[in-house]
Amino acid sequence: MAKRNRKKNQAGFVFPAPLAVVLVVLAGFSLVYVCLKAKTEALGQEIKALESRSVQLRQDVVREQCEWASRLSPASMEQALKAHGLVMTWPGREQIVRMRADGTIDSSVIPEVRPPARYARVDRVVMND
């Protein structure tokens, strides 16, 4: 039996070129779609993470503000001063110069001249004596 000449079989089944083009284009679109989808999902996850972070940060800000408000409260300030041995007092009668709204001094309450106040007493510590 004579061997078949393969070169003579060129006219066999040929994949239709337009169909191939359509399939390639479709495949291309699919690939782009999958890529975009993956990217969108990644962005979505990122946005969600940022949303949670934003909520968390807002809560942190409020917590810090509360903490700050607590520290600034008059009671806390007073405690802090006490802890440092500081005592806040209102000025004494003789230390006040009262000025009237029109800028004149209320002459009925002229402060007395007094020796300078001693704000601290330093005890001499005798060491190795």
């Binding site: 968390q56 809560q59 942190d60 409020v62 917590r63 509360c66 408000a69």
Partner: peptide, 9 residues
């Protein structure tokens, strides 16, 4: 405008 009450997480 000191904070007197606030919600905290």
């Amino acid at each position: 405008a000191n904070i007197l009450a606030a919600n905290i997480g």
